[in-house]
Computed example of a mutant assay.
Amino acid sequence: MSADFWAGYISGAAGILIGNPLDLIKVRLQVGTPSLTTTTTSSPSPYTSQFSSASSLIRGATAPILGYGALNALLFVTYNRTSTLLNANPYGTPPTLWTTWVSGAIGGLATWVVSTPTELIKCRAQISTSASASSSWGITKNIIRTDGLRGLYFGGVVTALRDSIGYGFYFWSYELSTRLMMSKIESGKTEPRVQESAKVLLCGGIAGVATWASIFPLDVIKTRVQTQVLGPSSESALLLASANVGAEQRRLGAIDIARNAYRSEGPSVFFRGLAICSIRAFIVNAAQWAVYEWIMRELDPSRKKVVT
């Protein structure tokens, strides 16, 4: 395996471990209902009780740790190879910002095969208020049993669109902020001993925030699409109230979900959870880029870093 594969895999897994508690809160804010379990007639528990134990803060982390590591590896490998193909600049010079965005978008699109089932399982686990219904493996088996392997790719179109646009801005913003940082370093405005660490941490954090800001409405729609589960009697029967799934027991598509959400909750619904997501994005991506760059130097010191 190439150095960027392992650097991407390990940094992706590290990002999930760091950011899962905040991601859990973000998903539940996007869904917009404090209790989605329909298997009981008792009154719903208070929202804060869903985070009453340490285990509740890592709920849904299993699938992302396994899946997002592979996703991140695929992302960086595809981005690096595409950037090399598209870069017409002389050897050793950085790519243009446009080819950086295109390479990131292609890399994001390539992750669809991993990100769709990972996001589906993660979101359903995170909105579950029952520990017995939040097992990633249990949710996976239930999906396959009821919908087959095709069910793991429910919401795939909006997920692919989100990932393609988002990762385009991810690498674009990292490259842009890195160049701005380097211009300050070269002008002597930054202390040499903090140059590299400050550049990676700050630019990585900025890239994460810029990415989520560019695609957050799409992510809200994706979350609401994927958290629709039909049938009131199954262990993970979690019906999204705002989706207005009718008596015909039909899952709604992204356009219907967006239309219903806008009608019932207004335009602000598409930005619900953005603040907590931005905090998480800065922390996670600062750490993720730091891990990626460190592993790249350790595994392949002679290789020029992707973004400098």
Rank of each mutant, 00 (worst) to 15 (best):
S55T: 14
P90V: 10
R81I: 02
G107A: 10
S56P: 06
T111L: 13
I106R: 13
Y68Q: 07
T99I: 15
V113W: 08
F51M: 11
G92S: 13
F51G: 13
Y91H: 05
T84Y: 01
T111H: 10
V114Y: 06
S115I: 01
A63P: 00
W112A: 09
S52R: 14
G107E: 12
W112F: 09
Y91V: 06
G60H: 00
S83N: 07
G107F: 08
G108C: 11
S52K: 15
T62I: 12
F51P: 03
V102K: 14
P64Y: 06
A63Y: 03
S52E: 14
L86P: 03
P94R: 14
P90F: 14
A88D: 11
L86C: 04
G108L: 07
N72Y: 07
A61F: 02
E119V: 01
R59G: 04
I65F: 01
S103K: 12
L57E: 08
T62S: 09
A70E: 03
L86V: 02
T78E: 01
L74V: 05
L66I: 10
Y91T: 12
T99A: 09
L97Q: 14
V77Q: 04
I65L: 05
A110E: 08
I106L: 15
T96E: 10
T84L: 13
S103N: 11
L109H: 07
P95C: 11
T96Y: 11
L75R: 03
W101G: 02
S56N: 05
A88G: 02
W98H: 14
W98E: 10
T93V: 08
T62P: 00
S56E: 15
V77Y: 05
I58V: 13
P95W: 13
N80Q: 04
T99D: 09
A54G: 14
S103L: 14
V114E: 06
G104I: 07
T118P: 05
R81Q: 12
A88Q: 10
S55H: 05
G108M: 06
A61H: 04
T78L: 00
A110C: 14
K122R: 10
N87W: 02
S115H: 04
V77E: 05
F51S: 12
I121G: 00
L74Y: 00
A63C: 08
A105D: 11
N72F: 02
G108Y: 04
L109A: 15
S53K: 07
P64D: 03
N80Y: 01
T62Y: 06
P117R: 03
L109Y: 11
S55I: 14
Y91G: 01
